[in-house]
Design a protein around this nucleic acid. Structure first.
Length: 271
DNA sequence: CTTTTGACCTGACAGC
DNA sequence: TGCTGTCAGGTCAAAA
């Protein structure tokens, strides 16, 4: 579920409930995530104040004094607020209880997510240090994409999903941004010029921005919320629409697998 | 260096 | 109602 808009929506939803409050307890029910949850997490985190909740790519950064709790939601993770009376379910692997009574709970059936502790600058963590520019910041621009793809013969869609080239563009939004930019997902990245990269950057920002807004309005309550009803799914223009009419030209949308990921495009609009 | 492949893990769903 | 096979929004290390 979590692509960048869901992670950002989670960040915005949680931040006002947790920032400024101190951690009173940490519960780890299952350490077997993508990497093991650190054994000393409770001892290192308890008593610290959460100063800020930030995001880098799809990583959530809970700043706490001279260290940071780093959380990634993987494919199936979800973080939300519960009260103390809410019994944990089978896949509720981690709780962060705060002095103000809020409990942040992580549920992740597939356990591709991460819960890590990093002293010092979290951006220096090995999983974060080589990530490309944030798509919603000016650091991502046409010049960057153009320059960094001159030697790439691979498909533009695979390049877009490479976190070292640009942060946080997942499978759904790579499909959606390429449709909006009218670029064929199979087109070799090196064959795209500066002007087209300009359009692509604009469309990446546009679709991520719209999805974040939609998330903010559909996920209005992070307290005891069941969450993601609807989100942005009903607004996808190509993702999951194989065989359906292109919303621009009525040509049937094609689906195929590219780089092991489901890919959708309009063969007429996207060249 | 780039590109591809396999791995991690569970749940939902289609088809028999 | 089961069972089996396929697929899923992420990301990395290893292999090619």
């Amino acid at each position: 579920m979590p692509e960048l808009p869901e992670v950002e929506t989670t960040r915005r939803g949680l931040a006002p409930h947790i920032c400024g409050s101190k951690v009173v307890s940490v519960v780890v029910r299952n350490r077997a995530m993508r990497e093991p949850v650190p054994r000393n997490l409770a001892s290192v985190l308890t008593g610290r104040r959460i100063d800020a909740l930030e995001r880098r790519a799809k990583y959530l950064l809970f700043r706490a004094g001279d260290g940071t709790l780093i959380v990634h939601l993987g494919m199936s993770g979800r973080l939300w607020l519960v009260d103390a009376a809410t019994a944990p379910g089978t896949h509720d692997h981690f709780d962060l209880a705060l002095a103000n009574g809020s409990i942040v709970r992580l549920r992740d059936p597939r356990r591709f997510g991460l819960v890590l502790w990093q002293r010092g600058d979290p951006l220096k963590h090995k999983l974060l240090r080589d990530i490309g520019p944030e798509p919603l910041s000016p650091a991502l621009n046409a010049q960057h994409l153009y320059a960094e793809t001159r030697a790439r013969s691979g498909a533009i869609k695979s390049a877009l999903m490479d976190s070292h080239l640009v942060a946080g563009v997942g499978n759904i939004y790579a499909n959606e941004a390429l449709f909006r930019a009218r670029i064929n997902p199979k087109l070799p990245a090196r064959r795209i010029g500066l002007a087209r990269y300009g359009v692509l950057v604009e469309k990446i920002r546009e679709v991520l921005g719209e999805a974040i807004e939609a998330g903010g309005s559909s996920l209005r309550d992070y307290v005891n919320s069941d969450g993601e009803a609807g989100f942005f799914q009903n607004r996808f223009l190509v993702y999951g629409r194989e065989g359906d009419a292109c919303l621009t030209c009525k040509t049937p949308i094609r689906g195929f697998v590219l780089g092991q990921r489901a890919t959708f495009y309009c063969p007429r609009c996207q060249r």
